[in-house]
Design a protein around this nucleic acid. Sequence first.
DNA 1: TCTGGGGTCCTTTTCCTT
DNA 2: TCTGAAGGAAAAGGACCC
Length: 416
Amino acid sequence: MAAVTAANTANSPLPRRIAHLDMDAFYASVELLRYPQLQGLPVVIGGGRRDCDQRITTEGSGLPLHEIPLADFPRLQDYTGRGVITTATYAARAFGVGSAMGLMKAARLCPQAILLPVDFDEYRRYSRRFKQVITDIAPVMEDRGVDEVYIDFTQVAGGQREGGRVLARLIQKSIFDATGLTCSIGVAPNKLLAKMASEFRKPNGISIVHEADLQPLIWPLACRKINGIGPKADARLAAHGIHTIGELAARPRDWLVQHFGKATGAWLHAAAWGRDERPVVTESEPVSISRETTFERDLHAVHDRAELGRIFTALCEQVAQDLQRKGYAGRTIGIKLRYADFRGATRDQTIAQATQDAAVLRRVAGQCLKRVPLQQRLRLLGVRVASLVPVVAGAGAQQAPACSTEPVQGGMLELF
DNA sequence: TCTGGGGTCCTTTTCCTT
DNA sequence: TCTGAAGGAAAAGGACCC
């Protein structure tokens, strides 16, 4: 998201106190509120496709959700098809089942686990509720996804008391009273340290970090704990014998720049020394809007042309609807695909006038598709629109005139 | 029987213009 | 007219995050 406004407290006479709040096992906790009878049982949430798309329903039985008998819940062992686990309860994790694991593998490890479909609408409802609670207390809040936020405590009444602990406690209690959900909060001089601090005590914990805590609390941690260092960067650092943040801090800035590039090297050095001036950004505009789907089985551009065409058209229509609903049009239209062997490719093309029209997206995305090798079977196809501009409601998006008469359906044959 | 979907941001490459 | 350098925009890929 591109920042449009920022609450900058750099010139404040008060010391900066930034909180990072992370909801505890968010999806699983929301599901357990709905189905308290699953408390303590191995439950995985995931799939999101076909077999497990059917939400447990009370239709027919007339029972309230919390009285649905355990025998009526689908089990992992009954699942067939593709999909991964989005999250798992602690009881399920005890079997070695975890996020991002394939459902088939998970079924072998814990066949009796209950499988629930992902219900993003419900999680978003809870997300709005807990964020409303926060902004009622501390208005400078940055949205970092469905279950995470940064909050600038600096100017909030009580935000400086006990380094932020008093306000953190108030927010934690208010969220629990309003939603029944717990969260963990870290408060520190900046976002980088606050994010790490929120991991210290989970679940339902509060951690306060000051600048003086850098050496004893932060430096012993693995580099991977820095938000932005993933598996690749971690491996590169390890190759140089750098495993902890302290070891990273010990390397001269110039050495890091020399080995990791100007921007990354400087950032690594600053991060290791706990320096981060990024403001808490309260509003932002999307950079891109996309839709993608993994097929039930791998599809071939020639043999499965009709099916692929239907999916492709549907993706363009979904993106167009998303654009219209959110009030954006875009100039850069692209496709993404993943081959059966999991290699990927992207192509995009920028057009003269921003559009939110499905037929235009379909035509330009189709041209992108022509530029990519299609001998191998595909497992995923996606459509993306970037270079977004806001569209005033009612004004209508600018559309390429040449395409407005082109039917959305039926153009597939020429694509392959 | 591995490996989702929706994003952001950064780096490198390529292409076009001056 | 040709060539090369420089710079910017677009394209492609990849890392990372939730």
